[in-house]
């Protein structure tokens, strides 16, 4: 990507982070940590990688994205809103009674959401089904799915991985947000899923391990994915949970907690400063 393009994506990622803070603050609940760690990948997918049309969210031939780690809906919603699927101003209605922005993604209420998720471990299976359907119907669209590093403790994830390689789903790209934290603490301490890359390789994937905050590294990985034939591709992204808001970084406490007034002020000030620097 050109340096200008990279800058634009960085600016967008910063706006996605602001959307995460605005929405979780508005909701007085929600999951900022894992939304912030995935801000770059949400941005890259919706602003560069995926073949989609915000004016026609149900377009048949579109690429699909399944947020298997559905609790990080604030990150997905912020990306979708910034991409034009719905107004950014609606983000603070997250989780409000009668808002279409449900706590976890709902494909029937939120434009641009391709699958309802929230129960960890199921999203990747639905993505496998979508990729199989594309193959069967002869469509060339691609399917992407994002999982948490805690989520992959679910047995169903590995059932899905087995089926992805058995059916040679080279139209499927599985992304793991390796931010090292889940609710009860360090993923390594709760129940270690490591080594993630080796496990995915053993399950028949071609794998790229990248810095998930480095847009050029993400681009290289997504480009590599498209060259692989006959097997599924996985991107294991090393990230910082809470990335971009100093007091949220690397703290499991910010997994599922909304900022209070003072914290909101500070978080937004930090992000505004980052944005100003990028736009300078």
């Amino acid at each position: 990507m050109t340096s200008n393009e990279k800058k634009q994506l960085q600016i967008t990622a910063c706006k996605v982070r602001m959307g995460v803070i605005e929405s979780t603050y508005g909701a007085k609940a929600g999951h900022p940590g894992g939304s912030l760690s995935a801000a770059e990948v949400f941005t890259y997918l919706y602003f560069k990688e995926m073949n989609i049309d915000p004016k026609n969210p149900k377009w048949e031939d579109r690429d699909r994205f399944v947020l298997s780690k559905g609790h990080t809906a604030p990150g997905l919603y912020a990306a979708l809103a910034n991409r034009g699927f719905f107004p950014v101003e609606d983000l603070p209605t997250l989780r409000h009674i009668d808002s279409y922005l449900q706590g976890h993604p709902n494909m029937n209420t939120v434009p641009g959401v391709d699958m309802s998720t929230g129960s960890l471990g199921q999203g990747i299976s639905t993505a496998v089904g979508m990729a199989m359907a594309a193959k069967y119907t002869g469509k060339t669209n691609r399917v992407y799915t994002l999982l948490g590093d805690g989520e992959i403790q679910e047995g169903q994830v590995w059932e899905a991985c087995m089926s992805a390689s058995h059916y040679k789903l080279d139209n499927l790209c599985v992304i793991v947000d390796n931010n090292g934290l889940q609710i009860d603490g360090n993923v390594a301490d709760v129940l270690s899923p490591y080594p993630i890359v080796d496990k995915l390789v053993a399950f028949g994937f071609e794998v790229a391990a990248v810095d998930g905050h480095d847009l050029e590294a993400l681009e290289a990985a997504f480009e590599q994915a498209k060259t692989v034939k006959g097997k599924p591709f996985a991107i294991v992204m090393n990230t910082v949970k809470g990335k971009g808001v100093s007091f949220m970084e690397n703290d499991a406490g910010w997994h599922g907690k909304a900022p209070n007034d003072a914290e909101y002020e500070q978080a937004m000030n930090e992000l505004k400063a980052q944005l100003a620097e990028l736009e300078a």
Binding site: S125, T126, G129, A131, M132, A133, Q156
Partner: peptide, 10 residues
Amino acid sequence: SAAAGMSTAG
């Protein structure tokens, strides 16, 4: 779950 995914593709 995969059946669910397939159904979204028609």
